[in-house]
Nucleic acid binder design. Structure first.
Length: 274
DNA sequence: AGTACGCCCTGGCCGC
DNA sequence: TGCGGCCAGGGCGTAC
C-alpha cells in the first residue's frame, strides 16, 4: 500500500502532531513486527521517555529522530497505518493495532497492520545509510537525469528497476505502472536499452507522478489512510493501474494486465514502447 | 554479484 | 449463507 507519496503524507501529518513530544512508553503486541535489527525489549528501552526531535521520511520508511542519537523507524509493509490519536481524534485499539506509542495527555500513535508485513526498529543515526541501504530520494535535488541514466546499465526490465529500492527509494507497484505510462515506456523494456531521451522522459515522469501523488495525499485502494484516518485521492487519477480492459486515456486501446517480477503490471500496449 | 521466485500474513471478492 | 480459490500496493531468504 504505502509508497513514497503515502508515507510522505503520513510524515507531514505526524510532524505537526508529535514533534517535540515525549514518548512515555511503547507497547509492542506482536513480536514479529519488531523482528529486524533489534528485538522488541530494546525498542521499548531505547525509546522510553525520549523526546521526538524530528519526523522524516526515507524511501518508504518513516523516521522519528529522538533526543538520544537513536531513530525509531517504521515500515508500513502492504497494509500498515500510523494513526495519531488524541482527545479530538480518538481511534480504537483493535486486533490489528500491533504497536501503541504512548505520549503525554493520553495522545498516542497507533500502528495498525492487518497483514503484518510491517516493521519497527531502533537504530543509531550513524547506522542509517548502512541499515536502510536505499538508492537516492527521487524528489530530492540530488536526483538528476545523469544519475538515473548512469544506473540504467543492466538488462533488468524497467519495471523491476523502478521497484528496486536500492536503485531509487520509494517507488512501489502502483506508481511504477503510472510512471511508465507517463513516460511511454513498456514495462518489459530492458533498462539498458533506454537512450538519453527516454531516460529523460522517465526522469520527468518519476518526478511528475510522485509529486502528483503527494499533492493528492496518496492512493487509497484498500487500506491506506493518512494519520487522521482519511483516504487519499490519487486513485482517481490513475491512468493504468487497476484499469485492465478499460480504454487507455490517451489512445483508447484497452489497457493490458500482465505479471512482471511477480507483480501485477498494467500498461497500454499501444502508447508504451519496448 | 546480480537476478528470479516462493514465501511471510490476513482480508476481500468472485464464483459455485 | 458458506466455502474454496484467487487477488492484493512490500521485502526477504534462498536458489541459481
Amino acid at each position: 500500500m504505502p509508497e513514497l507519496p503515502e508515507v510522505e503524507t503520513i510524515k507531514r501529518d505526524l510532524k505537526k502532531h508529535v514533534t517535540g513530544k515525549m514518548i512515555s512508553r511503547i507497547e509492542i503486541n506482536l513480536p514479529r513486527i519488531a523482528r529486524k535489527h533489534c528485538n522488541q525489549d530494546e525498542i521499548v528501552i531505547r525509546t522510553e521517555r525520549r523526546t521526538i526531535k524530528e519526523v522524516k521520511r526515507r524511501g518508504k520508511f518513516l523516521l522519528f529522530y529522538l533526543d538520544s542519537s537513536d531513530i525509531l523507524i517504521f515500515h508500513l509493509g502492504m497494509t500498515g497505518q500510523l494513526l495519531f490519536c488524541s482527545i479530538d481524534s480518538p481511534f480504537e485499539i483493535d486486533k490489528y493495532t500491533h504497536i501503541v506509542v504512548r505520549l503525554k495527555d493520553n495522545e498516542k500513535i497507533l500502528f495498525r497492520d492487518p497483514r503484518q508485513f510491517g516493521q519497527v526498529f531502533v537504530i543509531n543515526q550513524e547506522e542509517l545509510s548502512d541499515k536502510l541501504d536505499l538508492g537516492p530520494e527521487p524528489l530530492s535535488d540530488g536526483f538528476t537525469v545523469e544519475i538515473l541514466y548512469s544506473m540504467l546499465n543492466r538488462p533488468t526490465k524497467i519495471k523491476s528497476f523502478l521497484l528496486d529500492q536500492k536503485k531509487i527509494a520509494g517507488i512501489g507497484n502502483i506508481y511504477a505502472d503510472e510512471i511508465l505510462f507517463e513516460a511511454g515506456l513498456h514495462p518489459i523494456k530492458p533498462a539498458n536499452s533506454l537512450n538519453k531521451g527516454e531516460a529523460t522522459r522517465l526522469f520527468v515522469a518519476i518526478r511528475n507522478v510522485l509529486t502528483e501523488g503527494v499533492k493528492q495525499r496518496g492512493t487509497s485502494i484498500s487500506d491506506y489512510v493518512d494519520a487522521s484516518g482519511k483516504k487519499g485521492n490519487m486513485q482517481n487519477k490513475h491512468r493504468v493501474y487497476g484499469r485492465a480492459e478499460k480504454p487507455c486515456p490517451r489512445c483508447g486501446t484497452n489497457i493490458k494486465r500482465t505479471v512482471i517480477g511477480g507483480r501485477g503490471t498494467h500498461f497500454c500496449p499501444r502508447c508504451q514502447k519496448t
